[in-house]
Amino acid sequence: MRDGTDFVELARIWRGPLVESVHRGTVVVADFEGRLVGSWGDAGLMTFPRSSLKPFQAMALVESGAADAFGLTDEHIAMACASHSAEPFQVALVNDWLGRLGLDESALVCAPALPRGEADMGNAFTSGGPRRVYHNCSGKHCGFLTVAKHLGAGLDYADPAHPAQKLYLSILSEYLGQDAAKLPMGRDQCGLPALALPMRSLARAAARLALGYSGDANRRAAARRVLGAMAAHPDHLQGTDAATARVVRATNGRVVLKGGAEGFLMAMVPERGLGICIKTADGSPRAKFAVLARVLGHYGVLETAEAEALIPDLCPPITDSTGALVGGTEIVFEKPVATTPTKATLGFWLGGVKEAFF
């Protein structure tokens, strides 16, 4: 990130009659050839997609034959792509997976963590406290362990030079159209390498993933299986009826998406051959799914009315400690222009009238 010109205003947070906060960011839409279909903010913004790269990592699990060798189902594949909440069904899948590998959770590089849900967290404390299987990336780590075992390599899969990491980088390189091994590398919160790349490049890679782009038949099949697993099991990717699952269900599986930390989101639209990347400048995740809904309406993936109706479902209202409504989120990015007379709200007049008339 260089300066404020990298970003545009995406959302406003209202409390009563006033704007309390503003979220700025970048939105990039590209096709499989890398042509920019749309760009708001700097399409060349170099940033860390974080967990949004998990579908490409999961492709190595399928392409290598490791998934079939250990009898993994599409639910396991979805968990390899997940940033999960450690709900009981998700933890059960991770434990089942480790059992298939003949390993226990001590083989996972990620640190012990707690579930996200209050009840699940309470149950975790009564049954021993934090565990590695509760970590939101434990499915991804199981994926790397599986590839490592299948390749006969060591279990030090966090090493950037490990064969499992190299296979993932070769897959990502084809989809990016550049050598991923030469990209800037940091370390993710879960202990694995984290790549930084231009948003335009990842949007193109997402479009290629959506189409199963590759000259290799096994890689094309792997792409189809990964996206199919994500579409069939959207609750696995984040949590039951979480924002990710709501978008997948609202589009009847025509859109597959994966969020990343610090306000990143990647979406694939196979029927249109589009890849979409969204990044909020402040790293807040609360508006990114609603921004995606606006993008889907903008490009006709959803009817405008459907997309706009989805927005409040993806942006929880702001309430006080008693549950009373005190505010909300307004997506100002590419606000649709009204074509029929409407009753203007206070929020419209204070926040969106410019977009409506000019």
Score class of each variant (00 low, 15 high):
residue 19 V to R: 12
residue 337 V to G: 15
residue 49 P to Y: 04
residue 135 H to E: 05
residue 228 G to W: 01
residue 186 G to L: 07
residue 151 L to I: 09
residue 196 A to H: 14
residue 74 D to V: 09
residue 291 V to H: 02
residue 96 D to M: 00
residue 46 M to P: 13
residue 99 G to C: 02
residue 191 G to Y: 05
residue 350 L to C: 15
residue 80 A to T: 06
residue 36 L to K: 11
residue 329 T to G: 13
residue 197 L to N: 12
residue 325 L to V: 06
residue 210 A to N: 08
residue 209 L to I: 07
residue 263 G to M: 03
residue 344 A to F: 14
residue 157 Y to M: 03
residue 251 T to P: 00
residue 220 R to W: 09
residue 201 S to C: 02
residue 69 A to C: 09
residue 342 T to F: 12
residue 75 E to Y: 07
residue 302 L to M: 08
residue 276 I to Q: 04
residue 298 H to I: 06
residue 69 A to R: 10
residue 120 D to A: 08
residue 318 I to L: 12
residue 90 Q to S: 00
residue 52 S to Q: 05
residue 58 A to N: 04
residue 289 F to T: 03
residue 305 A to R: 11
residue 239 G to W: 04
residue 14 W to L: 15
residue 183 L to Y: 02
residue 272 R to I: 01
residue 206 A to G: 10
residue 261 A to S: 09
residue 212 G to E: 05
residue 44 G to C: 10
residue 338 A to Q: 13
residue 256 V to D: 01
residue 135 H to G: 01
residue 320 D to R: 08
residue 340 T to F: 15
residue 336 P to R: 01
residue 342 T to S: 15
residue 318 I to S: 10
residue 237 L to F: 01
residue 209 L to T: 08
residue 130 P to E: 06
residue 198 P to M: 10
residue 223 A to M: 10
residue 149 K to H: 09
residue 84 H to F: 01
residue 12 R to P: 11
residue 166 K to C: 14
residue 323 G to L: 05
residue 254 R to I: 02
residue 80 A to W: 02
residue 222 A to W: 01
residue 272 R to Q: 06
residue 156 D to M: 08
residue 160 P to Y: 03
residue 159 D to E: 09
residue 135 H to F: 06
residue 320 D to K: 09
residue 310 L to C: 13
residue 41 G to H: 03
residue 350 L to Y: 15
residue 4 G to L: 15
residue 162 H to S: 10
residue 60 A to D: 07
residue 31 D to F: 04
residue 307 A to C: 04
residue 127 S to Q: 00
residue 35 R to F: 05
residue 115 P to F: 06
residue 206 A to W: 07
residue 262 E to R: 05
residue 15 R to S: 12
residue 178 Q to E: 15
residue 253 G to D: 04
residue 55 P to E: 12
residue 217 A to F: 08
residue 274 L to C: 04
residue 76 H to R: 05
residue 309 A to R: 14
residue 18 L to C: 14
residue 150 H to Y: 11
residue 175 Y to C: 04
residue 206 A to F: 08
residue 94 V to C: 02
residue 168 Y to F: 10
residue 321 S to R: 15
residue 308 E to P: 12
residue 24 R to A: 13
residue 41 G to P: 09
residue 178 Q to D: 12
residue 293 A to Y: 01
residue 327 G to W: 03
residue 302 L to I: 00
residue 234 P to L: 03
residue 57 Q to H: 08
residue 211 L to E: 10
residue 194 A to H: 12
residue 45 L to W: 07
residue 289 F to D: 00
residue 36 L to G: 07
residue 97 W to G: 05
residue 235 D to M: 02
residue 331 I to W: 10
residue 85 S to T: 11
residue 52 S to L: 05
residue 155 L to D: 09
residue 246 R to Y: 08
residue 147 V to T: 04
